[in-house]
Design a protein around this nucleic acid. Sequence first.
DNA 1: CCGACTTCCTCCATGGCGTGAACTATCCTA
DNA 2: TAGGATAGTTCACGCCATGGAGGAAGTCGG
Lengths: 415, 415
Amino acid sequence: MAAPNATTVRDLRRSNRSRALWQVFLSGPLTRQDIGVQAVLSPATVSNLVADLVADGVIIEVGLEDSNGGRPRGLLQVNPEYGYVIGVDVGETAFLVELFDLGLRLRARHVSATDMAVLDPQDAISHVADGIRSVIARSGVAERSILGVGVAVPGLVTRQQEAVVHGQSVGWEAVPVESMLRGLVDLPVLVDNGAKTLGQAEKWFGAARGTDDAIIVLLGMGVGTCVISNGEVYRGATSSAGEWGHTTIMVGGRRCRCGGRGCLEAYVGAAAIAARYAELTGASYTASPASLEGAVAAIIASAPGDQAASEVLDEVVTYLGAGIANLVNLFNPERVVVGGWLGHALGAGLLPRISEAARANALRLPFSGVEIVPAQLGQDAVALGGATLPIAKLLSAGAMTVPVRAERRPAFTIS
Amino acid sequence: MAAPNATTVRDLRRSNRSRALWQVFLSGPLTRQDIGVQAVLSPATVSNLVADLVADGVIIEVGLEDSNGGRPRGLLQVNPEYGYVIGVDVGETAFLVELFDLGLRLRARHVSATDMAVLDPQDAISHVADGIRSVIARSGVAERSILGVGVAVPGLVTRQQEAVVHGQSVGWEAVPVESMLRGLVDLPVLVDNGAKTLGQAEKWFGAARGTDDAIIVLLGMGVGTCVISNGEVYRGATSSAGEWGHTTIMVGGRRCRCGGRGCLEAYVGAAAIAARYAELTGASYTASPASLEGAVAAIIASAPGDQAASEVLDEVVTYLGAGIANLVNLFNPERVVVGGWLGHALGAGLLPRISEAARANALRLPFSGVEIVPAQLGQDAVALGGATLPIAKLLSAGAMTVPVRAERRPAFTIS
DNA sequence: CCGACTTCCTCCATGGCGTGAACTATCCTA
DNA sequence: TAGGATAGTTCACGCCATGGAGGAAGTCGG
């Protein structure tokens, strides 16, 4: 994970520290020997690094492993009290701000119901800042021990210098969330797309754990993915990779809210399901994001007996299967995780059928190496995912206080 | 490019050697200063490394840069005579074997027309081996100075221990090309999918040069891609990523030779174009791979006046645009390169329309950062791409004779 | 032709690093 | 309580990149 391209012996040290630390964080508690094996470091080096890390308070020794005739192995873990992180979920109907320790135990939470439709970006950000101040106060944690804030937002996030959010669904056009928030709270701020943070949470703690090539599919109002490649979130050139919902699955097909035709989301998105059901039953349909979840749940529940409902779901299975097959063909993952509130609702009973539909549409070979599984974390893990952003930064830096030393040149790029 | 995850100071040396060498190879001739800037190394280190590399004969000093009042800068280049590589294109109708020096200058070529349909894998491989022996003999190069053979094959390539080829279009089922060929020629053998080798060639020397996130789209009988991510070929879990031709673009659509329905290839593949034209004109159509290229060229040429032809091409533009848009949404590249023989044929006149169709189907933001350009290398670059495989291996190893030292443990993986 | 100057490159002392081998710590068993 | 086993630490060693000093190789003006 994030091998910090080392060129000097000092970089090497940091790189090794980082490797050891990642291991302990993700699969701790671990013995020194485990670290050596997993991070490919000699016992002497591990001992040396661990001593440093313990001295810095980043990791702590928690108990001993039982021995059978020899000195017992010490168990090492990241020190939960080393620092704290804040994760923010900027949702379309509510803001969720959560403060965690480094063990990802929730220490404080702040929820504010809001309607993004009537909130301009400036107001939204100041609500977020209020939430941040609130969880800090409530948790009683010293502000200087907070490592950073990770903000998950709906919509595309691009980064030239700072993260800028383009939230089509909430009417945000090039909102520089990162710098705006930095002006309100004096903490490191990291911004990323909600699907990507949730995906990272599933990768670290959920159904994508232990996989280096996975795709987390998120179904809800919108339809998105988080692609994990080589153990890291795949971003592409401007960090907007994984936009699956508006890929064309039916040329010239149904109209989509994005203005296009035949987008996947126009067939398997929550709004599409409700609209299609209404169309079949002749019911008058008024889309309201708030009631959508109940409406879709009702359709799924009534499917066994209800002709229209089961027809709608058949269609969802078909299109979703084709869409997942496309992902399998293009990305060749070893696991596809189906999540999002709609994913959970469908997954319970329909996953085998979706899987079968994917098999029918995918190439045999890539499909044979993939497993399709339900997500393990709920929608509330978006904020947790946000909190992973500053943690990833910490771990990749090896939890070293950055030495003040001018970078020689820009980053490493070929031609 | 391939930062060899260093953990010891020796690894560090090799890593830095590798960085310098990659730079010189890809953007040489270069001065020592250039290397320092691009690879982020101090002048002293560059000097040191270069001295080593020159002593090993890997790079050579070629001329001096003009000075204006100071010692002139020496220009460094990879020594073309340091070693030789062989690239093999296992095509469906011919085998092409080419021997290059490290400057990628062609030194010898061997072509053998063959019909894969009537050739079993064992025979095919022995033809390839003959070709390899032939180019070695013809070039007069000492066998021990040959660094390796890179073989580009049609079909999927998976690698557990050794590369195994699954070539649906040529009827190959799990053929262990790597070990078979290794039994016949005493050289390092590397096997990869033809689209990926061509893509790597475009990335190193062609239209994808200088980009870290690109997609090379290959149109011909089949429809495939090579995805470049972070400057390297994206492979996925089992190295079969990028299978674009059989992604569904039209649920329940036209039948495809893969057995599925609505695959992209069934709309924009060469066979589909010819078949569709025949259907519209009522002509009897007999698909023959050999005549296909001419038939499609004729359709394209006659399009301005021919109603049926222009209708067929309109359709191709529409579907291809949607397909490319899907790639842009999912991978967020900064460049899409359109190649393959059909790509060249279409590209000449239709690229603007294809581009426009892609724009119409892609999300605004990712599309705004992408340029769609024609490929610069022809289909014969598949063998050249094969030759890049052993070169990549050489460069990533820093052209160091591998020290015989037991690896401590498996590779670096998280949890 | 010669010195002054400029720029590039190399050499060297220094501080860091990971490593194997020797050594110490800590437990179990008898 | 001694002996054995396993875990962890210390230390000398060899290797590395680096800044600074100094050598190399040109240009330019006289």
